[in-house]
């Protein structure tokens, strides 16, 4: 069950008449020597952690350990957006709140699943759990979609990076959105090829996004970028499910993302020396939290 590129993965899926999630489960069995049942159970426990984080994120009064963030997810979850109702619709509003809630749980030392990183851990749960509630889906379907998502994450890890320190935020929230988009497409009946189209579209959308955390903390702008990342995932999936394809193939988009990431200056790769972290407000916040240096 070996593949190194999206193209190889699609070929494998087509040859075996499997979905991406089936290939990923078989691959994991081979790799770990564990049974299918054990592997699915382990993924189920990850999904349970995601659900718990979402629930805490939108219902509890959360303040991060630094004091910088907290309470925004609950605000979005509870408040109606305007006199006419939510601008993006109730579903999107919920997905945003969920994904931001996970980031708040993370920033307050709660339990999360890095997906693929802690800084991008809200996008997959936000999209998946909102979708599950919207269509009354069984857990089993979402767990399969988590395997699909991890297939995309694996391809990006192999051929590029998912670390902000190496590739900027595009590598973190971009990868998370790409993974979520692919999972949703397969879950909603799309083919493996279509899943990778959605992943490509999501990545293309935030190509070049820098990693510039204020005071170096996984809080701001990370939390809001997770809220926005959910929309990226959902819209990319929607496009593909309506028959739209990515003009640039997935593998080439991943390569482009990696090249863009490498060409970003180090100030814009998680060092907190550039971008928003280097604004007067960003610097002031850092002094308030950590003192003057």
């Amino acid at each position: 069950m070996k593949f190194n590129t999206g193209k190889e993965l699609i070929k494998l899926c087509n040859d075996l008449e499997h979905s991406i999630y089936e290939v990923m489960i078989l691959r994991e069995c081979e790799l770990s020597g564990k049974s299918k049942h054990e592997i699915i159970n382990e993924m189920h426990s990850s999904y349970d952690i995601m659900k718990q984080a979402v629930k805490s994120g939108v219902t509890k009064d959360i303040i991060s350990i630094s004091g910088l963030t907290g309470g925004d997810a609950k605000k979005i979850f509870e408040n109606s957006a305007s006199i006419h109702g939510p601008v993006c619709g109730a579903f999107m509003k919920k997905a945003m709140a969920y994904s931001m809630g996970v980031l708040e749980v993370n920033a307050s030392m709660g339990k999360i699943v890095a997906a693929p990183t802690a800084g991008s851990s809200g996008i997959i749960p936000g999209a998946f759990i909102a979708l599950q509630e919207e269509y009354n889906l069984h857990d089993e379907k979402l767990i399969k979609a988590l395997f699909t998502a991890s297939g995309v994450g694996l391809l990006i890890s192999k051929n590029a990076t998912v670390a902000g320190a190496e590739g900027g935020c595009q590598a973190e929230t971009g990868s998370a959105a790409a993974m979520a988009a692919a999972g949703i497409v397969e879950l909603m009946g799309g083919s493996p090829e279509e899943a990778l189209h959605a992943a490509a579209i999501a990545l293309k959308n935030i190509l070049g996004l820098v990693c510039d955390p204020i005071a170096g903390l996984v809080e701001s702008p990370c939390e809001k970028r997770n809220g926005l990342g959910v929309s990226n995932a959902l819209i990319s999936a929607e496009m593909v499910l309506c028959g739209v394809t990515s003009i640039i193939p997935f593998d080439e988009v991943v390569e482009a993302m990696y090249k863009v990431g490498r060409s970003l200056p180090f100030e814009l790769k998680e060092t907190a020396l550039g971008g928003l972290a280097a604004t007067p407000t960003g610097k002031n916040i850092k002094i308030q939290i950590f003192g003057d240096e």
């Binding site: 993924m43 749980v105 339990k111 802690a118 694996l154 890890s157 998912v162």
Partner: peptide, 19 residues
């Protein structure tokens, strides 16, 4: 890489490297 390296670790936040 295992799928649980990609979708994981399960962890207490906020940072995989710092926590």
């Amino acid at each position: 890489l295992s799928v649980f390296d990609v979708l994981g670790p399960k962890m207490i936040g906020p940072s995989s490297s710092h926590t």
